[in-house]
Nucleic acid binder design. Structure first.
Length: 425
RNA sequence: GCCGCGGUAGCUCAGCUUGGCAGAGCGCUCGGCUGUGGACCGAGAGGUCGAGGGUUCAAGUCCCUCCCGCGGCCCCA
């Protein structure tokens, strides 16, 4: 602590402290459990790709939004900005894989954005994909799985909103045959986020016509009317997916919402988003959809449907809802030698206790006063300490102190192990 | 890439308006006598005031550039 040693980090990049990382691992455990149940294989796609591969998703403009650079051999590379591209490259370069292919990933990715609330330049995401299924059933399964995941981590206030880009596109073309479809879509995507009048002026600028009629059809119809209207615009697939989720699988969180178009690029069919109703300001916590076109850009020919979500945002949403995350850990024990010569004996004894119980045990790596050791025990919130003095070493018994109850027991190692194996309350 | 607000001890911050000796609380280390802890009491260590440049007799304080943080836009997780 004597010398100043202040090393910075690049913008938007940070350490994840042990406390925080425990939450990431807890979420990973939940995610893996669900993946196992539905037999999605978890893998780690490549972190670094050729820029050309990454730009297949969104065009060369993606360069502004990602980490992209030349390596020493002048190769144009980029850090992955999502997990889907890597998984899709993996699948299309392994045509021998039996279909349908269910894959998942949980890892870090990078984006060259300005950092702001809930957003960093490197962040964790989870991702699941089905390749080679039928769009209707794949989307129903993926959305079901998303619902299960959110339920299993204790999230309560969320809505799954689904739509179909083809349907929305047809509606736009019907009302505005000469309009700029992507621009109008982007405007529709803002429904509920900005004023209706601003949306209208955005659509106006994109050459849209009959704007009021279009908006009221998309956003102000009753659900029953809406279902009959969408058939006219090619909404059969959406209707079917909705029915499976709602009626057959009882996913009651699902809603039809044509403002969900997932902005731009590679989605081309059913799309969906999950929003936390208690944390609108962190945007959507899960997004996904059908992306067969991306697969074909990679040289494959099959439907693909997936979902992905930001780990940080999901944890923020849980925090916002006040969900208590139970990290259930066995008791923490600190073994304290009362004489310097007893350190080795203490280490040996710690090892024995680790074999006999499931407790977390810290053995000594230095000698210091008993007072210091007890203060340290408080700081690491040890549940128990074990004193090893001359008397204990000679009898083979140990003195176990319950730090909360301030009680001490002189017991055999086996008896101590039994006490320590009880769940912490 | 653009806009706003910040950056002073390990942490949270005061000092900046109006230039004049570097501060507080918490934390840390040591001690309150040697096999019993948290709140107590005493002492101490710890700072190129984010970095570089400029103005000035003199800059933490005023000016410029850059970096980093927190937010907003764009885009998105």
């Amino acid at each position: 602590m004597s010398k100043k040693n202040r090393l910075g980090l690049p913008r938007g990049i940070r350490d994840i402290s042990p406390d925080k990382y425990e939450l990431y691992l807890w979420l990973l455990d939940r995610f893996r459990a669900i993946c196992n149940k539905y037999n999605y294989k978890v893998m780690e796609p490549a972190t670094l790709e050729f820029f050309e591969t990454l730009s297949l998703k969104s065009g060369p403009d993606i360069a502004n939004e990602i980490y992209e650079f030349k390596d020493k051999a002048d190769r144009h590379l980029g850090l992955r900005f999502d997990l889907t591209v890597g998984l899709t490259r993996y699948v299309t370069s392994h045509p021998e894989l039996p279909k349908p292919i269910r894959l998942a990933a949980y890892s870090v990715q990078w984006r060259y954005d300005e950092p702001q609330f809930g957003r960093y330049r490197s962040f964790y995401a989870w991702d699941i994909e089905i390749y080679g299924g039928n769009e209707i059933y794949s989307s129903a399964e993926v959305i079901l799985l998303v619902d299960k995941l959110l339920k299993s981590i204790g999230l309560k206030h969320y809505e799954i909103r689904i739509s179909d880009r083809r349907l929305v596109e047809n509606v736009i073309k019907y009302f505005s045959p000469n309009g700029n479809v992507p621009a109008i879509m982007r405007a529709l995507d803002k429904w509920g986020k900005i004023d209706k009048s601003e949306i209208i002026s955005l659509i106006n600028r994109a050459g849209g016509d009959n704007i009021d009629d279009m908006l009221s059809l998309l956003f102000e119809s009753k659900e029953s009317d809406f279902l009959s209207i969408i058939n006219k615009f090619g909404g059969k697939i959406l209707e079917k997916v909705y029915a499976i989720l709602k009626d057959d699988l009882s996913v009651d969180r699902v809603r039809l919402d044509p403002s969900i178009v997932r902005g731009l690029d590679y989605y081309d069919g059913i799309v969906f988003e999950v929003k936390s109703k208690k944390g609108v300001e962190i945007g959507s916590i899960v997004g996904g959809g059908s992306f067969s076109k991306l697969v074909s850009l990679f040289g494959g020919d099959m439907n693909a449907f997936g979902a992905a979500g930001g780990v940080e945002r999901l944890l923020l949403a849980l925090e916002k809802e006040g969900v208590k995350i139970d990290l259930k850990k066995p008791p923490l024990v600190l073994v304290i030698p009362l004489e310097e010569e007893l350190i080795t004996y203490s280490i040996k004894l710690s090892e024995k206790l680790r074999d006999l119980s499931n407790a977390r045990i810290e053995s000594p790596v230095l000698y210091r006063s008993l007072k210091k050791y007890l203060q340290y025990a408080n700081k690491i919130t040890a549940d128990y300490v074990i004193f090893i003095g001359k008397a204990e070493a000679s009898t083979g018994k140990i003195k176990l102190r319950d730090m909360n109850k301030r009680m001490e027991y002189t017991v055999s190692i086996e008896e101590a192990a039994e006490i320590l194996s009880k769940e912490k309350d």
